[in-house]
Simulated assay, not measured.
Amino acid sequence: MTKAVLIGPPGSGKTTVGRLLSERLGVTCRDTDADVEAVAGKSVSDIFIEDGEERFRELEAAAVRAALDEHDGVVSLGGGAVLDERTQELLSGHTVVYLEVGLSQAVQRVGLGTARPLLVFNPRSRLKQLMEQRRPIYERLATIKVNTDDREPEAVVDEIVKELAR
Rank of each mutant, 00 (worst) to 15 (best):
R65V: 00
L83F: 09
V82C: 05
K162I: 02
F56T: 03
S45L: 10
P10R: 10
E132N: 08
G78H: 04
Q133E: 14
E53W: 08
D149S: 05
F48Q: 08
M131F: 06
A61F: 06
I137D: 05
G13L: 13
R109G: 08
L99T: 02
A62L: 07
F48H: 03
T32M: 15
A4W: 04
T148G: 01
D72S: 14
S125I: 00
V64W: 09
T87M: 04
E163I: 00
T114V: 03
A38R: 14
V107K: 03
A66Q: 13
G26M: 09
G113T: 06
V110S: 03
F121C: 05
A67P: 02
V96P: 11
R86S: 15
V107A: 12
V44C: 08
V107Q: 09
E132P: 01
T95W: 05
I137T: 14
R126M: 03
L77I: 07
L141I: 09
R166F: 14
S43R: 14
G18K: 03
G26T: 04
M1A: 15
I144K: 01
E54C: 05
M1F: 08
G11L: 13
L83A: 08
D33H: 09
R65D: 12
Q129I: 02
E53F: 06
D69F: 10
A142Y: 06
G111A: 12
R86D: 15
E152V: 02
D35N: 09
S43C: 13
Q88C: 10
P123K: 01
T143K: 07
A106L: 03
G93W: 01
P153S: 11
F56A: 10
T114W: 04
D46V: 00
L25F: 07
Y138F: 11
S125N: 00
S43L: 15
L83T: 04
V96D: 07
I47N: 08
Q88L: 10
A106Y: 02
L77E: 04
V161Q: 12
L119N: 01
A61C: 07
K3I: 13
L77W: 03
G73C: 02
E163F: 12
I7W: 11
R140H: 12
R24F: 11
S12R: 01
K14Y: 02
V146Q: 07
T32I: 09
A62H: 07
G73N: 05
E152R: 13
V64A: 04
G73M: 05
V97K: 01
K128Q: 15
I137K: 02
S125H: 02
G111Q: 12
E60A: 03
D31H: 05
G8D: 05
M1H: 14
Q105C: 10
V64N: 07
L91P: 07
E70V: 08
T87P: 09
G80Q: 13
C29F: 15
R19H: 13
K145C: 13
T15M: 12
I7E: 09
T16I: 06
